[in-house]
Write a protein that binds this DNA or RNA. Structure first.
Length: 618
RNA sequence: GCCGAUGUAGCUCAAUGGUAGAGCAACCGAUUUGUAAUCGGUAGGUUACGGGUUCAACUCCCGUCGUCGGCUCCA
């Protein structure tokens, strides 16, 4: 799979398999067959284990087993070894179709397989979802080396098609049966598998490199943020470098939003329970909210998980005419969400977050242009940051969630999802669609990105709200004199400071563009006698709005350069006798390029130009 | 929240039941240096926290908290 300009492209003519249809058939067969071989090896070692499902996935495969004990690293090692032996035996994979009764007899001791058979007879796939175009149920078995599994296939014909050193078992963990936390816990073993040992080695090397750009590691090294046990999990503290970055992002957002016709508003962190009852956060969103604090009078207050109810109140502050629509209220509001402890992940998933939030109130006729205006804003930002590996996703409701996760009004869901789909198509913006990913009040376009270690996150979001304006009795007087309910768009093109900066750290691997770099220029005096001139240069840079510092430590120049390189500071300005004499600096870029002496004023002009253009180059 | 792993100095890591160490960073001193590590010294830990076993616990056991890898969930 590759990404080009945000569009998923595939050029392989081979038939594609997998959840995202991104695994070529030959590789899919290898991975799928290895999953079976792993099950065989696991069963040999743990005869009491019950295999459940074991699909191929990106980069490999997994298999979930019902076993009393978790697998240990020693188990994985032994299982890997055994798998290689089986592969080297060059055993055949044979397919056989059986009747439902025969299948049930064969798997009578495995409740999970029996449940799968139940599903097959109803035309469902492994995950209990209805398979596309399922006709008469076919129950097929695959057997290799005397081990038989219920499986749709396909598989390799013989294990000689698998290189014994092109796979390895990578991890074990728990997983719920059919991904539902109310179901029994299973033990999953993950494997990596490719066509050749070289591809496996390349993948493993890539993962090692990805770890180096992990924002948790770089964020500490570059002194951007910390977490502290005594403060609490998921509550980041921003060091001065991080605070500078936040201010730069906010500055950019304010400028862009001013240009796009937004007004800035502000709202408190706390509110009475009543507001969230009205908004529908209680109960739709209650489990993601911090528990309430109760005041003497018995009034409950909640910290806000979202800013929208406040903006709705601001919209309702006076009667609105169709003439002033669309109304666009923007706020970098700090929200608090009680995320499950196991879900916290560095800056990418936190419990306190500052959102690049805004709410647009508009009429239905204005919807498309407003919605696409927001998408345009995304694209402008992404261009500035050079973000091109993302997928836009139309996140839709799921029927079974109506009244629970989602506002219970199916007609409006269908209508608004269609509005979004049409807007995206007419705006010629590529997107994918996903069920059961909507906000509780409406469908949305999410921008999906991947962290360095491959976790998927929504970076930005653009949401339609067809439900809450009515709950707040929001109205405007239309040109016909009638009161009407506006639509509301919730949007956050820069997501939250936390996730966005986490993403940017990984995206740039810490080498931020000059406008975003916490320190833009480090002035490096060669000897103590040059410190005065260095201070003078520093003052001139600061006066020009550049973030400069002098390294007046007793280190040698070489070490000062090394430290500045380590902090990925864009410009290193070495000053010695020659420079002081000529009112110049010796300009070294963090790329290692030495541009020799540049006049101080010339450097200031250059740096200011780069900053003002939000340029990616130095 | 669930399953598993894990927690030693600011950071990276040693110490396998017998007095907690190293490198880097910090601090002090010397050096005054031309594009990725100058030299010497000093200080720094109730081994996450709380219990237990033992003559003796960083080490073994239990609990709590945090972190990591997944699952579930999301900006």
């Amino acid at each position: 799979m590759s990404f080009t300009g945000g569009i998923l492209t595939m050029s392989n003519p081979e038939k594609m398999y997998g959840k995202n249809k991104n695994i070529p058939e030959s590789l899919y067969k290898i991975r799928h067959s290895l999953a079976h071989i792993m099950a065989e090896a696991v069963l040999e070692r743990f005869p009491e284990a019950r295999p459940t499902i074991g699909p191929p996935i990106d980069n490999g495969f997994y298999y979930d087993f019902s076993v009393p004990q978790a697998f240990t690293p020693e188990d994985l090692e032994a299982i890997t070894k055994r798998m290689r032996e089986i592969v080297r035996k060059h055993v055949d994979f044979g397919r056989r179709e059986v009747s439902e009764a025969e299948a049930r007899a064969l798997f009578k001791d495995n409740a999970f397989k029996l449940e799968l058979i139940d599903g097959l007879t109803r035309g469902e796939d492994d995950m209990g979802e209805k398979a596309d175009g399922a006709a008469a149920p076919i129950i097929s078995l695959y057997t290799q080396d005397g081990f038989t599994d219920l499986c749709r296939g396909p598989h390799v014909d013989n294990t000689r098609q698998i290189h014994p050193d092109s796979f390895t078992l990578s991890a074990s963990s728990a997983a719920y049966w059919r991904g539902n936390e109310k179901n029994p816990v299973l033990q999953r073993i993950y494997g990596l598998a490719f066509k050749t040992p070289q591809e496996l080695a390349d993948y493993q090397k890539m993962q090692e490199e990805a770890k180096r750009r992990d924002h948790r590691k770089l964020g500490a090294e570059l002194e951007i943020f910390i977490f502290d046990d005594e403060v609490g999990p998921g509550l980041p503290l921003w060091l001065p470098n991080g605070a500078v970055m936040i201010e730069q992002l906010e500055g950019l957002a304010k400028k862009m939003e001013l240009d796009a016709g937004y007004d800035r508003v502000r709202s408190p962190h706390l509110t009475k329970q009543d507001l969230f009852v009205r908004s529908g956060h209680l109960p739709y969103y209650a489990e993601s909210m911090f528990p309430p604090m109760e005041l003497d009078e018995g009034v409950k207050y909640y910290v806000k998980p979202m800013n929208c109810p406040f903006h709705h109140k601001l919209f309702a502050a006076r009667k609105r005419s169709y003439r002033e629509l669309p109304v666009r209220f923007a706020e970098y509001g700090t929200c608090y969400r009680y995320e499950q402890s196991g879900e916290l992940f560095g800056l990418m998933r936190v419990r306190s977050m500052q959102m690049n939030d805004a709410h647009i109130y508009c009429s239905e006729e204005q919807f498309e242009s407003e919605f696409m205006g927001v998408v345009d804003l995304y694209l402008k930002y992404f261009k500035i940051f050079g973000i091109d590996k993302y997928v836009m996703r139309l996140s839709k409701h799921a029927k079974e969630g109506l009244g629970k996760k989602y506002v219970d009004n199916e007609a409006m869901w269908v209508k608004t999802e269609d509005m979004v789909r049409r807007a995206m198509i007419s705006g010629n913006v590529p997107f994918v669609e996903a069920e059961n990913e909507a906000a509780f009040y409406g469908p949305k376009i999410d921008v999906q990105i991947y962290s360095a270690i491959g976790k998927e996150f929504s970076l930005a979001t653009n949401q339609v709200d067809f439900a809450v304006p009515a709950r707040f009795d929001l109205t405007f007087i239309d040109r016909d004199g009638q009161e009407k309910t506006p639509l509301c768009l919730h949007r956050a093109p820069l997501g939250t400071h936390e996730r966005f900066i986490g993403f940017l750290i990984e995206h740039y691997a810490g080498t931020f563009p000059v406008w975003l770099a916490p320190t833009q220029a480090m002035i490096i005096p060669i000897a103590d006698r040059h410190v005065d001139f260095a201070r003078q240069v520093e003052r001139r840079l600061l006066a020009a709005g550049l973030r400069a510092r002098v390294d007046d430590s007793p280190d040698r120049m070489q070490n000062k350069i090394r430290k500045a390189q380590g902090h990925k500071i864009p410009y290193m300005l070495v000053v010695g006798d020659k420079e002081a004499e000529a009112d110049a600096v010796s300009l070294r870029l963090r790329t290692g390029e030495d541009l020799k002496a540049v006049g101080v004023n010339a450097f200031i002009a250059r740096a200011k130009d780069v900053v003002e253009r939000y340029a990616p180059e130095l």
